[in-house]
Design a protein around this nucleic acid. Structure first.
Lengths: 217, 217
DNA sequence: TAGATTGTTAATCGATTAACAATC
DNA sequence: TAGATTGTTAATCGATTAACAATC
């Protein structure tokens, strides 16, 4: 087993959550024309310890070079690839209310690889609209659309009451992941990835910090 | 030091992040008319271990009763108070684009205690609009408005390039916390709370899980 | 080569889980 | 009282940090 290929051991969630942040800082450095950076310099910028940075990166491979550091562009590309940002994702947004519309307008900016193909809603007053050149379709046709257009990701922007039903349909229709903005914990099959954005949970956490119950004030 | 009052030791972030979730489940139980619940029953619902639930709650006080369990409504109220949801927060949203507008329409639903007083933008085509009965004001007047209206929280929905400048102004004007949606890590004074919602980071995490680099597939 | 910095092992720290005495 | 379940201490597990040998 002297194989150089990394065993694909389960990477901890804590590590994964830090990857997009590494990528952001590397992108900035790249933009500034910085060629190389050491774990120590990166630590000063990003706030993680140099040790943690080296540990994190070595989960995926030896991207650095002793005595030199890391090549900024190379590392940026590696992390992008690890995150799966070297391919395209076809998405649908279910729920064309304010948030769904905002995401339809924004998501394609984040990175060209995320393409919103359609929005869906049950409200007949929204069906037929075009948001950022994307059609709002009747939620009736969700499953068929997802199947025939090979949609990768479903974004749920409905109320919490219909979110699970939508999730079931999306999973049945074959999406690989769900980005959930509804205030509910969804049940999805093991092979479907789930990422939650619980905005009110986040706001409540802020309220906690502000309220002084933290004992720090 | 046989005082019954809990020492306000620093509560770990992991615990705080779970509180809104406890609250959500307790709210549901309350709605269903459930009076009491044991840590074991709650564990089955919520997915944390019973041991963790008891540990978490005991950071704040002994809310349960041996041989009985926890009173649902009582515990709900306690957690709400710990989170600081028993008071009102005056907020401004800076950046009246799609996301800012969406939040202006949504946030007050989350809980009556969060009141958006005004939106701000630099774009003259947005200034003067009314979103959900909330005025869009000229960003010029931000500091003065926050000061004279005793705003508690600032919500940043601008691009990453202006986010730090806005944060500085908000802090200078005296907000107690910032809810940041811009894709940048902000610097704020110690006494100002900061909660980030990095949507693209979240989307990239989803891409990672879906892409199969996880080694689980 | 000498100096620098990684990759990786070992030590520490913190968070989660298990166990059980206290007590309702 | 006996049974149930908490509150809390102890054990375990995992993640972070420190240290240093490998090596560019």
């Amino acid at each position: 087993m002297a194989n150089k290929v990394k065993e694909t051991a389960k990477i901890s969630n804590a590590v994964i959550k830090r990857l997009p942040r590494y990528r952001r800082y590397l992108k900035e450095l790249k933009k500034k024309g910085v060629d190389k950076i050491s774990s120590n310099e990166l630590s000063n910028l990003i706030g993680y310890t140099a040790s943690q940075i080296r540990q994190d990166l070595n989960n995926f491979g030896g991207f650095g070079q002793q005595g030199y550091g890391y090549n900024v562009e190379g590392l940026y590309n590696e992390i992008s690839a690890i995150l799966g940002l070297d391919r395209e994702y076809k998405m649908v947004i279910v729920g064309a209310g304010n948030l769904g519309q905002a995401l339809a307008n924004y998501t394609h900016y984040y990175r060209a690889g995320f393409v919103v193909k359609a929005l869906f809603d049950v409200n007949p007053r929204l069906v037929g609209l075009r948001i950022n050149d994307i059609d709002v379709l009747d939620a009736e046709g969700l499953v068929e659309y997802v199947e025939s257009n090979e949609i990768d990701l479903g974004i749920i922007c409905t109320t919490k009451d219909s979110a699970q039903e939508i999730a079931d349909k999306l999973c049945f229709a074959g999406v690989k992941g769900i980005w959930n903005f509804a205030q509910v914990d969804l049940e999805v099959p093991n092979h479907v990835a789930l990422e939650n954005v619980h905005l009110s949970d986040s706001l409540y956490t802020l309220a906690y910090k502000v309220s002084g119950n933290e004992g720090k004030l």
